[in-house]
Design a protein around this nucleic acid. Structure first.
Lengths: 340, 340
DNA sequence: GCTTGCAATGTAAACGGTTACATATGGCGG
DNA sequence: CCGCCATATGTAACCGTTTACATTGCAAGC
């Protein structure tokens, strides 16, 4: 296929001139540019991206490393990332499902030279030194990091505040026996949500005994399973806060099967505000985390950093507020669509 | 940062030897390889992907061009693509939301030299010559193409067959006044589904008068809006087939607001089997298209093509079967989870 | 002991662009 | 009329790899 040299030959100019035309260098005469463009069009010349990246060390591409590419949550993050990436005419290089630190490192290495920056989410706290190693060679912005990495900008969600919001809501409705289905141990989101839950109870003068928090793993099945333990407890809880919507969904099925009314017998609340939750029966009260903004802000931070050529810019940690979405699963009137 | 030359100098070998070590060339002595690897490790050498791509014209990356990156449908396709891409240690270069043929062309051009093949979905029939132009320079596999492009492999879904399945199901339940909410004009999926619907009616000896098909655009709001026109019809339809689940969801809301029982007064069926549909009230009978397989098969085709070095391989068009998922929205007993 | 051949490594030319620097051309002031 | 400068274009080095081909060293065969 035609290279820049073929175009140069056809237009009777040097390759430098062709390159200038394609990079909108104002030096070239209109007439010459015209001739070059015609030759390029007739040869159907497409510049080679790898060659461009090699010389400029620019790729107009951001790498994205997420535990998964799919599911409502990641999908929304990607949508947020894409919303700004798209208007800036950047592209995205994905590599998914990396369980271990070594896999993350391998994926990042394979991206070297082909991306201008890396947006990544490392779920377990295990691989901080992995992130540090990557950061030395590639500009990194972390999404919802399990722990702060020095010199790394990040965007995260106010899990603690969100959990406080729901719990306060349940307490405000008069519930005194409130249980929680926790997320996986070692997961920072899960831990922060549990912390917010406990803190809200303490502030209300209640005792957050450990038995109030039953284990879960963020999956629907674990919410279903948690119902048994919750219903066995005496006095029986009148409200349950599931650390995410998936588990709330499982919980609702289990409660229905047990013949209990929601919210009549038990109030249920979730976390994440997945679009599905609106259609549940009853519609779920949950915490909205604006996952879209999570992705959007991450790219924005990245672009701000890169635009700042001398890169004297310190790392920034942005925390996104969580808000409460009141529907029917807790018995409150869903008059105010969203609070705080 | 360290390049291959730095490693060569440190290990006291030539750059060719370093390159050989990193490409597992069996010629190098174990001892030499050892020394090279140690130098590389101490310098924290990462090979540059752009440079590699430039010389080898290989990138271990597939480009993906979809109308959107998000939403249940695309999310599942991506999951399917990723399932095989991931195990082969490939990466994915995305560029999303390209409305016009020119935008698609631009995105593909920007990928030249950085991908080994391109998986793309072009929704409107408008840009076949765009695809042809891309195909000349990059190996392309089309997902659910609106029209066959000569020399281009593709994977598509049996929309026609799926629509026949649901329609036959409704007719089999005794319905004689069956309406359909169509998808956007010019969209081949939509047209094939409408064709299947009409054909099923004709085969059952019914007259598929044009008024039986009311317009829609695949979005929830258009399903909601369609309800008005359907309910105005006399005799009032007793069953409605929505060309996708989104519209079926809108339809259900509208029917509920109109005080009608589903399936008691009106049976409703959809198309796509989005995970949401399971949780609707009532759970939706719909056509399952195995979107996951759509993505999976597309990459598989791509890999088969590329593995075949002499590329004497003709283009292949694979059609994925659709199946019926019976739930409660049509009044049939959902005993058999899935038919055909 | 001298060729022959093979195994291990080195040399240097690609790959397809960008860009610093050199060069050619023309216009203008002195 | 000459030199100078600005403008337009060309030349060639470089980006960091891979790889065809050249080179070296050594063991085996005659």
């Amino acid at each position: 296929m035609a290279t820049i040299r073929d175009v140069a030959r056809a237009a009777n100019v040097s390759i430098a001139t062709v390159s200038r035309v394609f990079n909108n260098n104002p030096l070239v005469t209109g007439e010459t540019a015209q001739r070059v463009l015609e030759s390029a069009a007739s040869l159907d010349y497409w510049p080679n991206g790898a060659a461009r990246s090699l010389t400029t060390s620019l790729s107009h591409t951001f790498g994205v490393l997420l535990p998964d590419l799919f599911g409502e949550f990641y999908s929304e993050i990607i949508r947020g990332i894409d919303s700004v990436v798209h208007e800036r005419h950047y592209q995205l290089l994905f590599s998914s499902s990396h369980a271990s630190g070594d896999e993350v490192l391998g994926a990042a290495r394979a991206m070297l030279g082909r991306i201008d920056g890396l947006l990544m989410m490392v779920p377990d706290a295990a691989s901080i030194e992995t992130v540090e190693r990557i950061r030395k060679r590639i500009t990194v912005v972390l999404l919802n990091p399990s722990v702060a990495v020095p010199g790394c900008s990040s965007v995260s969600v106010d899990n603690y505040g969100g959990a406080r919001l729901v719990t306060d809501h349940l307490l405000g409705l008069g519930h005194r026996e409130v249980a929680m289905v926790a997320g996986p141990a070692g997961n920072r989101d899960a831990e922060e949500r549990a912390r917010g839950f406990r803190r809200a109870l303490v502030d209300a003068g209640l005792d957050p005994g450990t038995a109030q928090v039953v284990p879960g793993d963020f999956r629907e099945a674990s919410g279903y399973a948690a119902a048994r333990r919750i219903l066995a407890r005496r006095p029986r809880p009148t409200a349950v806060f599931a650390a995410n919507d998936n588990m709330a969904i499982g919980l609702l099925s289990a409660l229905r099967e047990a013949g209990l009314q929601v919210p009549g017998d038990v109030a249920v609340a979730g976390f994440d505000n997945q679009t599905t939750t609106r259609y549940l029966n009853p519609p779920l009260t949950t915490v909205d985390v604006d996952t879209f903004a999570l992705g959007r802000e991450a790219v924005t931070l990245m672009l701000e950093y890169l635009d700042d050529e001398d890169n004297g810019r310190p790392s920034v940690n942005r925390v996104l507020p969580a808000s409460l979405t009141i529907r029917e699963s807790c018995g409150a009137s869903p008059a105010g669509r969203s609070m705080r």
